[in-house]
Nucleic acid binder design. Structure first.
Lengths: 196, 196
DNA sequence: TACGTTTCTTAACCTACATTAAGTATAAAG
DNA sequence: CTTTATACTTAATGTAGGTTAAGAAACGTA
């Protein structure tokens, strides 16, 4: 039962659950382990799960028509991830979800999630709230991309995802903030020698 | 009662309402009219309403540290708009919501919205769904900004917001897709003479 | 119907960031 | 521990899109 405490605490930050509701949720979860570089989802597939990361780290990314990858989101421990477009439309998506290291998730299927909305309406609230939060951060990220030079986007990233910057390959950070690895390397050099 | 049909139809696309629930919703709405160039919300204020546009058109935008405006979203007839960050945190926001022409909205206050979640749980579902849809389109827009040249972003915009392109000042479109008015003008010239 | 303001266009010049390429460091996997 | 792939750095060169400026068109207000 302890392997569920992380997800339960995550949910109980926003809603209250009775023990029975907790047990019901747990009965719907499906634990999945994947190794570094393996995928939970690939472009072209229909996303059938919301994933909650209990250990390790995932990345969601797309590949554009020129073959370049773009990181949509990182999902370290305690984060949710899915291809939202595909999950809600149940059409083939464009997102890859890949493990950056050995990772364990609890998968909640779309059908289980819908059952949950009906049986335990508080979950409707929970997912509304985390979707709202996600929307706010994507809006802010878009505005950052429209208004800030790459150097500030990098510094913001380091602050906001503090522990992550050390774990992630710089390449992935570059892709997230929207620059090439070469240019990120140049920025890091500059930041190192011009301030302090 | 007919002035409410647009918002009721909008909501009934996603959930069912009894006549009593409809009446309850209507009792919570506050109609507001504003004229071209007036604001419903300014940066620094706390956003207290979700706005549903019944006629006219609004834009949500921010002003960066260099004084440049960036359009976050347009809200023509039948769209919802708010400063989501400020609305959910009830802290001062960064978004201006301004009328591009004479506009009428139905305003639903944050407190009314929360009451609605409790009295009529289906509204929790409704706002979950529209927030999910909004999230998907912001994710796509971010990816477009990361992966597509300005010319394709402009063409996508023209397709996706078809009627809007004719109504909006080109300046606003430029701000939305993330280029200067000068560069948009250059692109339009090019598109006009190179194809067809 | 005219005036002032805002928007649009054109063009010369500029810069942040991309591309290419080649070498070096790091780390995964046998 | 070695091997091999992957990630990182540096530097030269290229380009999409920004900046500045100034005139032309369109539009809102009277």
């Amino acid at each position: 039962m302890d392997r569920y405490s992380l997800i339960l605490e995550n949910i109980k930050k926003h809603i209250n659950l009775t023990e029975e509701e907790e047990r019901y949720l747990i009965s719907l979860l499906k634990p999945i382990s994947i190794k570094r570089k393996e995928w939970l989802l690939e472009a072209g597939e229909i996303c059938k799960y919301s994933y909650f990361v209990t250990s390790g780290c995932l990345r969601g990314y797309t590949i554009d028509t020129n073959g370049f990858e773009h990181v949509l989101s990182f999902a370290p421990k305690n984060w949710w991830i899915a291809d939202m477009y595909s999950l809600i439309s149940q059409k083939p998506g464009t997102v890859y979800i890949q493990a950056l290291e050995s990772t364990e998730v609890q998968a909640l299927s779309k059908t289980a999630q819908e059952r949950l909305y009906i049986e335990v309406p508080a979950f409707e609230r929970f997912f509304r709230i985390i979707t709202e939060n996600s929307l706010v951060s994507f809006q802010q990220r878009l505005l950052d991309n429209l208004s800030l030079p790459a150097e500030e986007r990098y510094q913001n990233f380091c602050k906001r995802y503090h522990g992550l910057t050390d774990i992630l390959p710089a390449k992935q950070v570059a892709s997230y903030i929207g620059v090439t690895p070469e240019f990120l390397s140049k920025m890091k050099h500059k930041l190192l020698y011009t301030n302090r």
